[in-house]
């Protein structure tokens, strides 16, 4: 339990750091890029909305930085991330909550599949060193060096088209209304196949490699030799003794590299015009919609932190040594 508490404390600290970074970034921009935009919408904005933007971007230079910081936190606790410039009357939290489920479904599911698949193949590659799977390694290296978005471009070019089964953009058929019914769900799945495949292909190789290397290291340990000497079946030694121990660093690696993976997958969304956070971020960057950008960064960071916490709990269940202390 102590371990878990420590981790939670660490994530709270990290969240605080991310929010503080988010507070300072707009204040470091020389000049007021927001002010001109504010002027443009002045007639249509309520005074409340303007106040909230003032707090978010530190335009009220009279207030001390400390009181600005306190106001900023107060606003965050109310879930107020300001107004989006591009989706004007809508607030940032509204826009983000529309896009978030798409990203969570696409990125979450593909990342888990990729982790499981990659770890499985890695176990094989590490255990059967010198077999045909070793020949797979250069290919996976090449695939992991390709940027996610370029693979997406290639996938669209080769597989998608007017007559193809795979749609080249969007998250669902244009005419449909998002709902849990028999028209929308198949369409959404069909649209997510190609992006998911892209993410899978480019992220799986990392897991294969790290798991292979761990397996190779573990396979030389004495307890593996003992297990063989006991006459256990090859399969049992590979899965129950070697893979189980090799998995531990891979799980903690999973937690740590989530940030990298999420970054890459956001780009796949951009290429496929998938209605998730990545595409939203892309549009926000293009339109210089600062409140939206900051909101997206916060939401992504918090999601990654939560995913990390889950990975830590999984680690806790896998590794008895961490449980012993508490």
């Amino acid at each position: 339990m102590r371990y878990l508490l420590q981790r939670i404390l660490f994530y709270v600290f990290t969240a605080w750091a991310a929010i503080t970074i988010n507070f300072f970034i707009p204040r470091m921009i020389p000049g007021d890029p927001v002010k001109s935009l504010l002027a443009r919408f002045q007639g249509q904005m309520s005074t409340d909305a303007i106040d909230s933007l003032y707090v978010l971007f530190g335009l009220d230079k009279d207030a001390s930085i400390w009181s600005q910081y306190l106001d900023y936190w107060k606003q965050l606790f109310h879930g107020d991330l300001g107004l989006s410039f591009t989706a004007f009357p809508a607030s940032v939290s509204q826009v983000i909550s529309d896009a978030l489920p798409w990203t969570v479904a696409l990125v979450g599911i593909t990342t888990i599949i990729s982790f499981l698949l990659g770890t499985g193949l890695g176990v094989l590659a590490g255990w059967r060193r010198g077999s045909w799977i070793d020949g797979l390694l250069p290919t996976t290296t090449f695939l992991s060096s390709v940027p996610y978005f370029w693979l997406g471009l290639l996938a669209i070019y080769l597989l998608a088209g007017p007559d193809s089964f795979f749609p080249s953009s969007g998250g669902y058929e244009p005419g449909l209304v998002p709902a849990w019914d028999q028209y929308f769900i198949p369409s959404a799945i069909q649209h997510s196949l190609l992006p998911a495949l892209t993410i899978l292909i480019s992220s799986v190789s990392g897991w294969i490699l790290s798991m292979r290397n761990m397996m190779v290291t573990v396979a030389a340990e004495d307890y593996i030799t003992v297990a063989h000497a006991k006459g256990l079946s090859e399969r049992r030694v590979a899965l129950g003794y070697a893979a189980r121990n090799a998995l531990l660093p891979n799980v903690s690696g999973f937690a740590l590299s989530l940030g990298f993976i999420v970054g890459g997958t956001l780009l796949v969304e951009i290429v496929f015009s998938y209605p998730g956070l990545g595409f939203l971020l892309f549009r926000a960057v293009g339109a210089k919609d600062y409140p939206l950008m900051q909101g997206i960064f916060l939401v992504i960071t918090i999601s990654v932190l939560v995913a990390n916490l889950i990975a830590d709990i999984a680690y806790l269940m896998l590794d008895p040594r961490t449980r012993k202390e508490g």
Partner: peptide
């Protein structure tokens, strides 16, 4: 270590994107 863990956990690419977009 706390500092490096914080930087490790915060998704780097979105951070780079918002900082670069904010910088003139």
């Amino acid at each position: 270590s706390a500092l490096s863990n914080v930087f490790l956990v915060i998704p780097a690419l979105p951070l780079i994107i918002i900082v670069t977009a904010a910088a003139p």
